[in-house]
């Protein structure tokens, strides 16, 4: 269980101006859920993810993972980055095995586990390909497999499909649902796509900027139903899906308007 309690982040910008990127954010990430943090750029969703990952210290507040405070990056929180942060000189399998290598797993075992993970993300046969021989979507799949390799308690996804074309993006969303259903990982996922948030989230958090804060949240069941075999297309055409989409969009737009006046 990951808990964020009263997390605030202040940045100092040029000229000594202080900006509040996150204002007293509290949330619980339930085990086995997918929490989607949704909002326009500048709403603090990346700041929140970076703080949970341990890349960024909090100004105030605390983040607890199973009761222990989170202070630095660690293998208990896997991260999938927006831009592929793969090592270009390593093959796909060696990239996936990086965390296992750090943990001191023997080579043979590492390779087997990496190949199993590549199968999980449908990249069997690409174990020895270098990242520059793979497409953008395939690289993100390697990134997902790599983050899963150390069997983290939480999977943090930083707009991982944002740079992909819409076709690839849909495939990746299907894949994530499939992987999530198989591994029952707890996922924290940030996006600026309302549709993506609705398709993938068991919980949606809507965040607004200046200062970054959570203004609303919904519990959903679309993704559970898709994971159980319902057609994604049918779910997307549902009335409730459309109504929520409109409601969230109105909320985000209103928040942006207020922000731009300030």
């Amino acid at each position: 269980m990951l808990q964020v309690r009263q997390a605030s982040v202040f940045f100092e910008q040029g000229g000594g101006r202080i900006v509040q990127a996150l204002k007293r954010v509290s949330l619980d990430l339930p085990t086995g859920g997918i929490v989607m943090a949704l909002g326009a750029s500048g709403c603090g969703k990346s700041t929140l993810l970076n703080a949970i990952a341990g890349f960024l210290p909090l100004s105030e507040g605390v983040i607890l993972l199973d009761g222990m405070p989170v202070e630095r990056p660690g293998a208990d929180r896997g991260v999938v980055f927006q831009k592929d942060a793969l090592l270009p000189w390593r093959s796909a399998a060696d990239n996936v095995a990086l965390g296992l290598e750090y943990a001191g797993m023997p080579r043979r075992e590492r390779r087997e586990r990496a190949e199993a993970l590549l199968r999980l993300v449908h990249l069997e046969g690409f174990a020895d390909a270098r990242p520059n021989e793979l497409s953008g979507g395939m690289r993100q799949r390697v990134g997902l497999a790599r983050a899963l390799a150390t069997d983290p308690k939480v999977l943090l996804m930083d707009e991982p499909f944002g740079a992909l074309d819409s076709q690839t993006r849909e495939h990746m969303q299907d894949l994530l649902v499939e992987v999530w259903a198989k591994t029952a990982k707890q996922v924290f996922f940030i996006t600026h796509s309302i549709e993506e948030a609705l398709m993938l989230g068991t919980t949606i958090l809507v965040m607004l900027p200046r200062p970054g804060r959570i203004v609303a949240h919904w519990e959903l069941d679309f993704v559970q139903r898709i994971a159980a075999g319902e057609k994604a297309e049918a779910v997307r055409r549902e009335k409730r899906f459309g109504a929520l989409h409109d409601e969230i969009r109105t909320l985000i737009h209103a928040g942006e308007q207020v922000g731009s006046v300030q």
């Binding site: 990952a53 341990g54 890349f55 630095r72 990056p73 660690g74 293998a75 929180r77 896997g78 991260v79 980055f81 831009k83 942060a85 793969l86 090592l87 990086l98 965390g99 750090y102 943990a103 790599r146 983050a147 390799a149 150390t150």
Partner: peptide, 15 residues
Amino acid sequence: LPVERINAALSLGGT
């Protein structure tokens, strides 16, 4: 070096 690569390695448990 892109900072993402370093962050990725740290979050995989690298010393």
